[in-house]
Every structure is written in C-alpha cells, then in structure tokens.
Design a protein around this nucleic acid. Structure first.
Lengths: 144, 144
DNA sequence: ATCGTTGTAACTATAATGATTACATCGAGA
DNA sequence: TCTCGATGTAATCATTATAGTTACAACGAT
C-alpha cells in the first residue's frame, strides 16, 4: 500500500517558505518550520536545485527561488523530487509467460490505460502554480 | 521514487485470465501465466475476493468472476489490491511546526490540490471496464 | 477416504524512506 | 587572510513494503 514519499510535501513547504520569508532561508531555519532534520531539507533542496527551481548561496547560506512563482507548477516540483527512473508511477510484473496469450499481451494493453491515468494526474498538477498555492496560503494565515 | 506495487498489474492479469480461460483457473495455472509463485497469486485473489470481484471454490479449486466483465472497472481492481489505509496516495509530512505560519497551514492547502490530482487519476481508472480491456486483449492476441 | 487445492503463517531478501552523525568545503565578512 | 557559519554529502540505522518461498492445516469434490 505504498504512497508517494513525503519529500513532495516537504518540497512544496520549502518553496512556499522561501517565497514568503523576508529573512534568509538556511536549512536550519527551514528544518524548524518543517520540523525535521536539516539534512533532510538540504537533500530535497539539492533536488530542487538540480531541477533549476532554486539556487543556493553556498558558503554564505540561504536558498532562493530561481523562477517566478507563477512559473513553477506542482508538476515541476513533483518531477523534481518524486519521479521514478522512467517516470512511470505504475509498476508492472514484467516477466509474464510469453507462451500464454494473456501473459504475452496483457502488459501492453494495461500499460496504455495506466499511462492515461498517470497523465490525468500530472495534468492536474500542472494546473496549479506555486503562486496560486502561496496566495491561498496567505489567505489562510491572514497575514504573514 | 516509489511506484505502485506490481500487485495491481498481476490482479488485472488474473481477472483477464479468469475471464478468458475456458478451463478452471487454479492458482498454479494462473501462476504459470504470470510467471510467479502460486502463493503470490492466492494472496492477490484473496484481496479480490474480499472486494467481491471473484469467488473461489475452496477445496475444489478454481477462481471465478463474481460480477459481469462490464461491471468491473480498473478502479475497482485498484481499490481491491492497492489502496492505502485512508485511500490517499500522497504522503504528508504531518508534524510541521505549528508556530510557523507556513508550517501551520501548508498541509491543508497542499492536500486539497493533491486530492484533486488523485481524483483525476481515479476518474480515469473508473472509465475503463475489464470488458474493454479484455476486448482489446482479444484483438491483440488475434484469437484465444 | 483420498487427493488436489486453497488459505495462511513464517521466514528471507531486497529496497525505499526518514532520521541522524560526521565532516570536508565553501565564501562572506571581520 | 582567517574565522565561522552554512552547505553538500557520505555513512549508518531503524522502519516498512514488496516479492518470493516453504510448510502445512483445512476444505470438499469425486
């Protein structure tokens, strides 16, 4: 019964914090808001950096957005921290018996359907920008 | 980088086989088509049984569909074998710092978006019946 | 009553996650 | 230039899910 890792929610948390915080965001500072270990934060920031979403002042400290808030979607963040090797979220039992007509063909038929389902999910994620999300967050917090 | 387990693809394989096979489907027979251990098959059949999708002739042997092919959707199968405790596929880092305005509110904002994405995926799965899938499978195999 | 099948328990190996300690390296500022 | 805080990353550990396997009691059609 596996779900997606919590890296994704932490990544969104990090980006929101960086977007909203007036002060410099060190991994220690962020870790306190997320309530976890600074190394967890640094690892995730490393992925966000690799995806071109943030840059980090090495030595000096602090993480900063590298794109505008409305240029980052939840899909971008998802792909940065959560995506599997080939991008598929569904697993397949891929060594079916080729001598059986069902075993030989079931995977390709099933895979097509699964990719459609995955696309639908990713399309939904692509609709939400961090700008929207942060704006809703601001409403919730009243001010910040 | 976790994906869904291969139980799902195996479950669909099992149901397709049961639907198409003229002979009795014992766990040994199915395991040969899937190319895995019979106990794996029995475990998954147990979940399908619990979900009311199949029934099993205990003692005698053999698995049979309990619903019509067009009454079983990929979402039904998904829920039978893959669903996590509360049904959410996304994980949340839920012990954020309540003293931080972002930490205190990010989860509920993010969760709403995630549930929409999950719904989109499940809606897509609900569109596909086993009847369609088996029909496509028949086309692929030529005959059976 | 027999015998093949199911339903489980128990065990193993493997892999991902999340947390933590440790430490080399970077670079801004005194 | 030196110091000191911050980053980047390796290594380790506990936990959990998956996948496979062996073993065996219980079922029930014949």
């Amino acid at each position: 019964m596996k779900k997606f890792s919590s890296r994704y929610s932490i990544a969104v948390h990090i980006l929101s914090l960086v977007a909203l915080s007036p002060t410099s965001c060190t991994s220690d500072f962020i870790a306190e808001s997320v309530n976890t270990n600074p190394v967890i934060i640094r690892r995730i920031i490393g992925m966000l950096k690799k995806a071109g979403l943030v840059h980090v002042r090495a030595g000096a400290g602090g993480t900063y957005l590298q794109k505008e808030l409305d240029e980052i979607t939840l899909l971008d963040v998802y792909r940065a921290v959560e995506v599997a090797d080939n991008g598929d979220i569904f697993n397949f039992h891929d060594e079916t018996n080729p001598k059986c007509p069902v075993g030989a063909n079931i995977e390709s038929v099933f895979r097509t359907k699964m990719l459609q389902a995955q696309s639908a999910m990713e399309h939904e994620l692509a609709q939400v920008t961090l700008k929207q999300l942060v704006s809703e967050l601001k409403e919730k917090t009243g001010s910040i």
